[in-house]
Amino acid sequence: MSNANQAMAARYKNNFLKEIEEQAEMGEWVKMCMQCGVCSGSCPTNFHSGWEHPPQEIFMMIRAGKREEVLTSPSMWMCTSCYNCYVRCPRKLPITHIMHGIAEYAYRLGLAPKMQPTLHLSQTFWRNCTKTGRVNEVKLTQALYFKDGFMAGIKKGLEMKDVALGLIKAKRLNILEALGFGHKCKDQQGIQKMLAKARELEAKRKNRQVTA
């Protein structure tokens, strides 16, 4: 257990609902669910592996105090942000945002499942894009292809080779990006400064929540 996780678990004891309400973004909405199940019925990732608990169940588990099970679950990470649940919820709960909020909280506590594809993509994308201020498409694709090992990456690359060649021909892909060339942001220092400031603000906000 990470330190942050231990601290939170100790702080809220048995009241996981209160913990989510105060710590996770949009968590205050969880108590308003009326268990109709429209969200679960509307979710396009329903019946797919990895989707253990639909939103309705996640909300119920939070109320039932199943802390460990919820926070380590890959379910919230399976959300494709299609917003079907959000639109259909008769109680007008921002379900998509709540899912992201819980996922983010689990990540913050270090409980999010490692190598979960969505989580991996988010991290890879973020690192890639914040480096120069613009996405290095070739490097991003490489990172994603080789996620599950060298051979898997080669295989995927061969599978997609026609698409890649087409993109190059149409001047949609700069192969030189692999060597660090390609488009970048003009004021790279400025971008880094902005990001640092944002991080600082975020930390302050979360710190306030933790000590509140």
Partner: peptide, 14 residues
């Protein structure tokens, strides 16, 4: 009324 109770933190379980 149901919503107002949920807002007050009453837990409803099926």
């Amino acid at each position: 009324f149901y919503r107002s109770a949920q807002n007050r933190g009453v837990i409803f379980s099926k």
